[in-house]
Amino acid sequence: MEQPVIDVRDVVKIYRMGSVEVPALRGVSLQIFPGELVAIMGPSGSGKSTLMNILGCLDRPTSGTYYLDGQEVSRLDDNALAHIRNKKIGFVFQTFNLLPRLSALANVELPLIYAGVTNGRERCIAALELVGLGDRIHHRPNELSGGQQQRVAIARALVNDPSIILADEPTGNLDSKAGREIMRIFQQLNAERGITIVIVTHDADIARHTRRILRMQDGLMVADEPVENPRWLLEEEPAPAAVSS
């Protein structure tokens, strides 16, 4: 069987607020395979953000294991996690998080700088062209619309050729038209390039653009179901949903 990109087993995360222990994840297991397009849903407080942070190697679980690309990452130190984030993970945030003083190109270049890549300009331009911004590479964020800014952020997430793209409410700050455009790009990257994408959202409409939905509640994974009729924004029909066992 194919090795999963994400393999999380019995992950528990407990936050300490003074003397009170607050369990945010109470034993979550999941597997995501290469080429999947997955939505993680759940109401606020369900633990989906906590799970997202752990999947993104921004945080470590209190207990349980997390294999990313076959590598155990749940016990690594800060610098090793920074290295993993740089090489294997692309982030897309609700608020875009672009650096306002840098051009689109320089924003996309940021992960390459920390990777020590010196001649990444071509790759950055290619990534911007992929999200349809090949003509805007020298614009600053404040000269771009919200949808365009989020596309720059997607290009930034792509540029290091990560194993997985994690998107946290990527359409939350966009109108529905711009939101659909972002989802179209995700579908395109997934279908044409086989990039694994995980989208955290509370919006059922957005989730319907993926092929698998994981539902969380009270720190537990309560459902894992394929999307019956994914809302497909591309010309071609979607490939049949990857079979998860």
Partner: peptide, 16 residues
Amino acid sequence: TREIGLRKAVGAKRSD
């Protein structure tokens, strides 16, 4: 602070 968070998210180490 947010800029620092973003830089760390995309792979900046403490030393960076």
